[in-house]
Design a protein around this nucleic acid. Structure first.
Length: 577
RNA sequence: GCUGCCGUAGUUCAAUGGAUAGAACAAGGGACUCCUAAGCCCUAGAUGCAGGUUCGAUUCCUGCCGGCGGCACCA
C-alpha cells in the first residue's frame, strides 16, 4: 500500500513541481493522523514560493484523479502534512493474506548475491566471554537480515590460534609443570572439556599477569617464535591439545546459541600470506621499516602508525588480517560484500587496516565493511580478559537460566528463554553503544524483553492449536479449514494490530538496509503489546461470535510475523512457556 | 596531548530533519468463575550547555562540559 501511494504521488509530482526525493511516506505515531503521512508540501513550499497548504491541496487534487482504490481519504493537517487514510477492509484482507503466508516479510532485493559475515571470533586458549556473546548475537542477526533479502550468506568465524596470547598461556603451563594427563588423546566428555578450558583460561591470565616482567616477557616472545615455526615438540604437544579442547568447547557454545558457521578461519592459516603481502609491498612504499619492525605510517591519511611485522620478524594481528581478507576472496571470488563484526575498541585499528587494504587490494577493500559494537557491561565495573576477571558467556547464560528455571520445567525451553533474554537485551538497542546488563532489571523478563516476545508468540500458538479442534457454529466450518479468507466474515473497523502487521515488510526492509536489528526488535515489542491487548480485549475462540474465525486468522497472522521477526533476531519460539 | 564514539524520564533504551519526543523497569490504582496473569487497563516524569544552518533540529555544523574507547612491535 505504501508503494501504491508513493507511486501515485511520484506520478503527479512533476506537474506540481515536487522534488521526487521529498516524497517520503511515514507512519504517524497518532492514528488520528491517518495511516501514512508525508511532509512533501513543507519541503517544497519555499523553493516553489508557495504556501505549504495551498501546495498540499494542489498535490491532493492531482493525486485524487487516479488515487489507489484502497485509499479512503486524504487530508491536510498542521502546517502542510498530507495524511492518507487507508480503508479498513484493506487491512483486514491483508491480515488474512499474512495468515497464510509463512514467508511474509522476506524480500528478493539481494537475490543472487553472496555476502560473508565474520563474527564471534573467540580465541583458543582464552575465555569465550560475554564480548563474544555480543558479537555473536549481532553477527547472527545481521546474517539473517541479509539472508532474508534473498542473498546467500557465508557465516565466518576467525579464531586466533597463534599469537602472543597463546605463548602466554603455554609459558604459564610450562612454568607450573605440565600435567600428566595432558597427553591423553581419548575422547573427552563435555564436563571434562569445560574444566580443561577453564584451566587454560586461568593459565592465560597467569601468563598475562607477567606483562610488566621483562624476564618473563623475553621468554614469552621466544616461545611465541617457537609456536609460530613449530620447532619444539614439547610445545607443539601442549599447543595441539589446548587448541583442540578450546575448539571443541567453542563448537558446543555455537550450537547452544544457534549459530552454524560455514567457514572457520584460523590465524595459523593466514599468517604466512599476510607476512608475504606486507613484505611484497615494503619496497613499493606502502610500508616502511622502523626500529627493526615493519610499520604503516597512518599519519599521512589522518590515522595512526601501526606495526605489521615485529622486529622479531613475526606478523602481527594486522598482517594476519591482510592474509585473512585475501583468503576470503580467494575461497569465494564472487563475494559481493564482506562484513566484519568486532568490538569498537578495534574501530581505529580497522580504519588503518582498511586503508592499507585499499592500497594493496582495492578490489577487496571496497567490498569490505567493518561494523563495531560496544561492550556488554555490568553495573559493577568493566571486564578485562587480560586481568582474568572476565565473565564467561556460559556463566552469564547459566545465571539467567537459573532464574528461568524457577518458572519453567522443560530444560530445552529454559535454554531458549535464557538465550532470548540475553540476545534481546543486546539487539534492542542501536549497534555501537555499550549494553548495560543490570542484574536487577535486565534479567527481569517483563515488558521490553525477549521472553515477553516469546510469551506472546507461545500464547498465540496455544490459541491456534485449540482453534483447530473447534467447529465453528456460525460458519458451519472448522476454523482450521479456513485458508483463503474469502468466506470469512471481516469486521467493519480494524484495530492497530492489523495496521502494525501490515508494516512488517517495510520494517524488515529498513532494518536490512541499515543492518539494524533494533528496528525489528522495537517493532516486535510494539506488535506484541498490541496483540496482548487484543488478546485481553475479547475471547478469540468464541463459538457465538461470528468474527471468531477472523480473530483466529488474525492470531495466525500475528504468530507468523512474530516468528519471522524473532528469527531475524536469532531468537527461537519455544513450544510452551 | 591527539583522535573516534556517546550524552533523551529516577534507571535502561527508542524516535527515515517533521505534528503532542515513544517504550520498559521502578511507584500507585483497577479488571478475571474467559483461549497461558512472564499478560491487560488507568495515573507522573526527559532531549548536558551555548551558538549556527533550516519553514521545521533529539537528529546536521561549531565550541564547551561530562562519560567511554583508541593512539608502535597484543588480539
Amino acid at each position: 500500500m505504501k508503494e501504491k501511494i508513493h507511486d501515485r504521488l511520484a506520478a503527479v509530482a512533476g506537474d506540481c513541481g515536487i522534488d521526487p526525493g521529498t516524497i517520503q511516506l511515514g507512519y504517524p505515531e497518532d492514528p488520528a493522523h491517518g495511516d501514512l503521512t508525508t511532509n512533501l508540501a513543507m519541503a517544497n513550499a519555499k523553493r516553489l514560493k508557495a504556501d505549504p497548504r495551498a501546495l498540499a491541496e494542489k498535490v491532493i487534487a492531482e493525486f485524487m484523479k487516479g488515487a489507489p482504490s484502497e485509499v479512503e481519504a486524504v487530508e491536510i493537517a498542521g502546517p502542510g502534512f498530507i495524511n492518507f487514510k487507508v480503508k479498513d477492509a484493506w487491512f483486514a484482507e491483508e491480515a488474512l493474506k499474512i495468515a497464510d503466508d509463512a514467508h511474509y516479510g522476506q524480500s528478493h532485493s539481494l537475490k543472487g548475491q553472496k555476502v560473508m559475515v565474520e563474527y564471534t571470533d573467540p580465541n583458543p586458549f582464552k575465555v569465550f566471554h560475554i564480548g563474544h556473546l555480543m558479537s555473536n548475537a549481532i553477527g547472527e542477526s545481521v546474517s539473517r537480515l541479509i539472508q532474508s533479502s534473498g542473498a546467500e550468506v557465508i557465516r565466518a568465524c576467525y579464531q586466533g590460534d597463534v599469537g602472543l596470547h597463546v605463548a602466554k598461556t603455554i609459558w604459564a603451563i610450562m612454568k607450573k609443570g605440565v600435567p600428566a594427563d595432558l597427553a591423553a588423546e581419548k575422547a573427552e566428555d563435555e564436563k571434562a572439556v569445560k574444566e580443561k578450558v577453564a584451566w587454560l583460561g586461568e593459565r592465560y591470565a597467569e601468563g598475562a599477569s607477567h606483562d610488566d616482567d621483562p624476564e618473563a616477557r623475553k621468554e614469552i616472545l621466544e616461545m611465541n617464535k617457537k609456536i609460530f615455526d613449530r620447532s619444539d615438540d614439547g610445545i607443539n604437544r601442549i599447543y595441539d591439545y589446548g587448541r583442540k579442547v578450546s575448539l571443541e568447547y567453542f563448537d558446543s557454545i555455537y550450537a547452544r546459541l544457534g549459530t552454524r558457521f560455514d567457514r572457520f578461519f584460523f590465524e595459523s592459516e593466514v599468517d604466512e600470506n599476510g607476512l608475504a603481502a606486507v613484505n611484497g609491498f615494503l619496497d613499493k612504499g606502502v610500508f616502511e621499516k622502523s626500529d627493526g619492525a615493519v610499520v604503516f605510517k597512518g599519519e599521512k591519511h589522518g590515522l595512526h602508525t601501526r606495526v605489521f611485522i615485529t622486529s622479531q620478524g613475526l606478523p602481527t594481528y594486522e598482517a594476519k588480517e591482510l592474509g585473512l581478507n585475501a583468503e576470503k576472496f580467494k575461497l569465494y571470488p564472487d563475494l559481493s560484500r564482506s562484513i566484519i563484526v568486532t568490538a569498537n575498541e578495534q574501530s581505529d585499528y580497522f580504519k588503518v587496516l582498511l586503508k592499507v587494504l585499499s592500497l594493496i587490494r582495492p578490489d577487496i577493500a571496497e567490498k569490505t565493511r567493518h561494523m563495531s559494537h560496544g561492550m556488554l557491561r555490568f553495573a559493577t565495573g568493566k571486564m578485562s580478559s587480560r586481568k582474568g576477571n572476565v565473565i564467561s558467556a556460559e556463566q552469564l547464560i547459566d545465571d539467567i537460566r537459573k532464574l528461568v528455571k524457577e518458572r519453567i520445567e522443560d530444560e530445552e525451553v529454559c535454554d531458549e528463554v535464557a538465550i532470548a533474554a540475553i540476545k534481546y537485551t543486546i539487539l534492542r538497542q542501536a549497534i555501537g553503544g555499550d549494553v548495560i546488563f543490570d542484574s536487577a532489571s535486565s534479567i527481569s523478563f517483563e515488558g521490553d524483553s525477549g521472553p515477553y516476545l516469546q510469551y506472546s508468540a507461545v500464547r498465540a500458538n496455544s490459541v491456534i492449536e485449540k482453534a483447530e479442534s473447534i467447529k465453528s457454529i456460525k460458519s458451519g466450518k472448522s476454523i482450521k479449514s479456513i485458508k483463503s479468507g474469502k468466506s470469512i466474515r471481516v469486521p467493519e473497523k480494524v484495530g492497530n494490530l492489523e495496521r502494525l502487521l501490515s508494516r512488517f515488510p517495510d520494517v524488515a526492509e529498513r532494518a536490512r538496509q541499515a543492518y539494524a536489528p533494533q528496528i525489528v526488535a522495537n517493532y516486535l515489542t510494539a506488535l506484541a503489546a498490541e496483540f496482548n491487548s487484543f488478546y485481553g480485549r475479547q475471547v478469540i475462540l468464541d463459538e457465538n461470535d461470528p468474527l471468531s474465525p477472523y480473530h483466529v486468522a488474525l492470531t495466525r497472522a500475528f504468530k507468523t510475523v512474530m516468528a519471522n521477526g524473532l528469527w531475524l533476531l536469532g531468537i527461537k519460539v519455544p513450544r510452551k512457556m
